[in-house]
Write a protein that binds this DNA or RNA. Structure first.
Lengths: 182, 182
DNA sequence: GAATATCTTTAGACAGGCTAACTATTAGCT
DNA sequence: AGCTAATAGTTAGCCTGTCTAAAGATATTC
């Protein structure tokens, strides 16, 4: 399997220019490495997959000035409202989030992250994010164009036969102006 | 948010050359698209995540002429032997695999895929794989080199701070599983 | 051939998902 | 206003897939 060498960049059978199969192998390796990384973060925080996704979503929305409702979590995560209810219970119990009354609709519960959760996540995932930004920063303009072309081709490959195309898909997120709630 | 246009390739704020952040967004979009694709396949076959991984592993080993034991599944998937036992029960029950006596060790049970499972999987995941190969085939040599450089940088970013470096990582890795979560 | 090691199975517990039913609130109709 | 339908969240009961611990079956070693 793929005679890769850390510093020399050799591929397939002694090739120094990657073929399609080599790029696919690199994609697979990246996916594995990222999965391990996220798993480690999750493990160190004692959280499961969906709770972690929920927390990341919560922090992202909060940074945009939006206070999501439980319903938004259900849509984002693709799980039922009932499951979200229990999920938020867990996040609150462990000090990552708090329930607040939603100013615009008293049926709804607004969810806000605690300061604790922000610093906790920043210490791990944000660090990875910055490293990735730095890494890409070393590429030339031509290389970035090529990388983008490659990624776009890959995306088209895996989504083409599901539906015609839906690039910046959905995000039916209710922008819900106002209420920074803080 | 990210004014992407399906045919024109515009990024960030009207840029036509992608910045680091645009490439990271593309990575995220690819990950999402692939996840949806795998989820759809899995759904259409009525299987869960680990069972699907197990089946892919089984087919890959079989193609190499190897008859894996249950123990091998446990290592590959990062779950306990007990769980593998039940997992193989499911695969057999649904007609994807069969238990045979292991030629070399009669304590062990050899697992072989059925013809049915091979055609079933070929019809879905292999099709995606071929589309990806075709897509990458349209890139020039320079573009493939750049894409590889990009991917290598990304891999380094997400695995560098876990351990010094372990490029072809494979096998020995402790696969995430098992966190008590109180 | 008895002791020990290895591979699998079974039993029981737990976590996190689901649906269905219930309460509280809001929106629409007349 | 008042009734009805729709929406948000909670709770209860079930199911699946994981785990650990213990037991069964076969190999290996002395």
């Amino acid at each position: 399997m793929s005679s890769y060498q850390a510093n020399g960049y050799w591929y397939g059978e002694g090739r120094s220019v990657p073929e399609a199969v080599d790029l696919l192998n690199l994609m697979r390796r990246y996916r594995e490495a990222e999965r391990r990384m996220r798993a480690a973060t999750r493990g160190s925080m004692g959280m499961n997959e969906t709770d972690m996704s929920a927390l990341r979503f919560l922090l992202a929305e909060h940074r945009k000035g939006v206070t999501p409702r439980q319903r938004d979590f259900a849509e984002e995560l693709g799980i039922s409202n009932a499951s979200v209810s229990v999920l938020i219970d867990r996040l609150c119990r462990d000090g990552y989030a708090e329930r607040v009354v939603h100013p615009a609709d008293r049926r709804s519960v607004g969810i806000v992250p605690t300061d604790y959760s922000d610093t906790e996540v920043r210490g791990t995932l944000h660090r990875m994010h910055e490293q990735m930004m730095d890494a890409v920063g070393t590429l030339s303009e031509d290389e970035r164009v090529a990388a983008a072309k490659f990624l776009e081709a890959m995306i088209r490959s895996v989504e083409i036969d599901d539906e015609p195309s839906r690039p910046s898909a959905g995000k039916g997120v209710v922008r819900e102006g106002a209420l920074p709630s803080r």
